[in-house]
Amino acid sequence: MDNSFAKTDADNNRVSSILVKYRPKLNANIQLQVEQASLKAVLSELSRVTGAVIHYSVLTDVFITATCVADNLKAVLQCLLGESQNIVYQYAHNKGQAGMPSEVWVLGSSLAGLTLQEDRGGVSCQGDRADLAAIPKNTKQADEKLVAQLIVKLESADPKQRADAIADLATKIAMDNIEVDNILLMAMGDKSARVREQVLFAWVYRNGRAAIFELQQALQDPVASVRLKAVDLAQDAAVLRLALLDGDALVRQLAEMKLNALNK
């Protein structure tokens, strides 16, 4: 069974294409080529073509471009979603794991923050963990020690020192460290605009597109450069549309440019 389609996303005027090739009788591999399509649409199409029912809870709303080729659905999903994704497969009783799974469950809500790599080579792809990979895998004790040092730095009178501490908290401490989240939330009220800008970056770095609420809040900041940073970091049309109403011309200009780029 082959399937190919191109469509225009109604909200964004975005041209998306999803191509899935699968010939079960020839025992051929599954070829998936996606161009600027939503993950929901991609999973739906994979499900339709392969016949496997794919269950999930929360999905990222990012548009993805990817190429995955593999000889089974499991490998294609690992390519698309990343190998660390927790996925459960149920196979038909009489075929074991050699055949196509009848049902697939993508567990948890981690798909909400997923980012994906693009593969122009058209052969293999993996989930893009570039941001996360940049964080060294310290021991919990090492993280605690570093956090303690950075908290001292955050008490500096020099905004640059505080901003540097925020950047280090964002990029050097494990993503699941709740203490860092609490520190960042408190630092959002720092008296220095430079620090608040860095906190916004830190929050987006650690939370991805789930940071939309904080970005919207930052658009209320009295200093234009902080609002400009929010627009700089924004990937969602909702934030950018809000920024079109900003009192600062530069903030509005950047929001308009980014919105136009999103719609192309």
């Binding site: 080579g121 941001d131 770095y205």
Partner: peptide, 15 residues
């Protein structure tokens, strides 16, 4: 000169 798989960062590591 063929394009090989390339990751696409969504945020910088220093901003």
């Amino acid at each position: 000169g063929d394009h090989t798989p390339t990751t696409v960062p969504t945020t910088p590591v220093q901003d």
